[in-house]
Design a protein around this nucleic acid. Structure first.
Lengths: 152, 152
DNA sequence: CGGGATCGTCAACCCGGTTGACCATCCCGG
DNA sequence: CCGGGATGGTCAACCGGGTTGACGATCCCG
C-alpha cells in the first residue's frame, strides 16, 4: 500500500453514492423526471430568482449549457423564465411552485442520507469531515466556495 | 444556515478540483491527450493485466462502455489488447510501456496535489478525512471499496 | 456433437457539456 | 440624437462518455 487509492477517487465514489441515493429516493416518492444536473440549478435558485447571465459564474459552465439546462427544467415544469423588467435582453429564472416542492424534497433527502453517514462514522467525525473539506476548498479559492467546475 | 451546502456538492467540487489539477499538470509535462476517464482504467490495471470481462465490475460501467474506453486508450497508445491464451473469446488488457509511464506520472501528481491539501488543513486532518471517508464508503458496501458507479 | 451460456463488438441513442455564429437590446460618445 | 460597440441569450454542430439491444464467435457440458 505504498500508494493508497487517490483521494479523487474517494470523492467520486462518495459523490455517486449520494447522488444515486438521492435519485433513488426521489423516484420512490414520485419524482421520476429529475435529472442529476437539475440539482445545481435548484440550489442556485434557492435564495431567489437569478438572471440567466449570472448563472454561468455560479454553476461553472458556459451560458449555452445553462440555457439548455434551463430549457429542460422549464419543460419539466421546475423553473420559469421571466423577462427582466429593467432590461429587454435579459431574462430571469425562478423556481416554479413545483420546483420549490422538489427543492424541499431534495433537502429532506440530503438530511436523511447524511444521517445514514452519521450512523457509519458518528456525528463528530462527519462534522469534521465536512468542515475540513470546506476549509480546503475555500482556501484554494480565496475564502468563497468555488463552483463545481471552475469557471473558464 | 439551517441547511448548509450538501455534502454531495462538496464532493463534486473537490473531485473536479483534483481532476482539473491533475490534467493541468499532465498537460504541462507533455501528456496532452489524456482524457479524464483514462484514470479509472489506468488504476484498474495498476496491479497487472485484466480480462475485459472483469473490468465492468471494477469500473462500474457496462461492458460496452469499457470496450469503448479501451478503444480510445489503445488508439492513444496507453493500453494493449491481447488475446487470452486460454479462451478464444476473451481478451486481456494491459498497460503499454507508455501507459506505465503515464501511471507513474499520475501517481506522482496525486502526491503533489495531496501535499497541497496538507498545507491547507494539515496532515493529521487530511489523514482523518481520508480514513473517515474510506470507512463510510466501505461500511455501505460490505467492507470493500465500491466502484465509482455501483454496478447494475 | 449440438445447444445454451459467455465474451466482446457494433449500432443507435441520450445527456450534458463545448465552441462559434448570430440576433436583439442596451448604452455611451461624437 | 444617432450609430456603433458591448452585452444577454439562443441556435446549430459537435464531442465524450455513458446506455440498451442485437449479434457473431467461442466455449462447455449433457
Amino acid at each position: 500500500m505504498t500508494e493508497p487509492v487517490p483521494l479523487a477517487r474517494l470523492f467520486a465514489i462518495a459523490y455517486r453514492q449520494l447522488v444515486d441515493g438521492l435519485h433513488e429516493r426521489l423516484a420512490e416518492r414520485g419524482w421520476t423526471d429529475v435529472r442529476p444536473a437539475f440539482g445545481f440549478l435548484l440550489l442556485a435558485l434557492r435564495a431567489g430568482p437569478a438572471s440567466l447571465g449570472d448563472l454561468p459564474g455560479v454553476l461553472g459552465t458556459s451560458k449555452q449549457a445553462v440555457s439548455k439546462l434551463v430549457d429542460r427544467m422549464v419543460a419539466a415544469g421546475y423553473v420559469e423564465r421571466v423577462p427582466d423588467p429593467g432590461d429587454g435582453r435579459a431574462k430571469q429564472v425562478r423556481l416554479s411552485s413545483r420546483g420549490q416542492a422538489l427543492l424541499a424534497e431534495v433537502e429532506r433527502i440530503w438530511v436523511e442520507l447524511e444521517a445514514a453517514w452519521e450512523d457509519a462514522i458518528g456525528g463528530a467525525r462527519l462534522a469534521g469531515l465536512r468542515s475540513d473539506l470546506e476549509q480546503v476548498l475555500r482556501s484554494a479559492h480565496g475564502g468563497a466556495l468555488p463552483p463545481v467546475r471552475t469557471v473558464a
